[in-house]
Amino acid sequence: MLYIKCPYCGLRAQKEFSYGGDATVKRPNINEEVSSEDWDNFVYMRKSPRGKHIELWQHIAGCRQWIKVQRDTATHEIFQTAKVTEEIR
């Protein structure tokens, strides 16, 4: 079970969180024209990297905030966590 540091609540067990996918995907702006290709990329196309991956998790059994987690998909090492408004680099 992973040990995830919620930026609001601190270190908590994985069972308090739910996974939310790739955090680097940006939704096209609402009320703006978007090409089919851009839209399809947003809806469907995801990379599945082995290694570092910035992903979204929601602290559903805690503060209910969505957070960013930079995790190694092979080793599960977590390098950094951040609020969604913050950058992970």
Binding site: Q58, R64, W66, V84, T85
Partner: peptide, 13 residues
């Protein structure tokens, strides 16, 4: 609820 929170927190803060 998670869906709404996702859009409010991440997409349209």
């Amino acid at each position: 609820l998670s869906h709404l929170e996702y859009y409010l927190q991440i997409v349209w803060p």
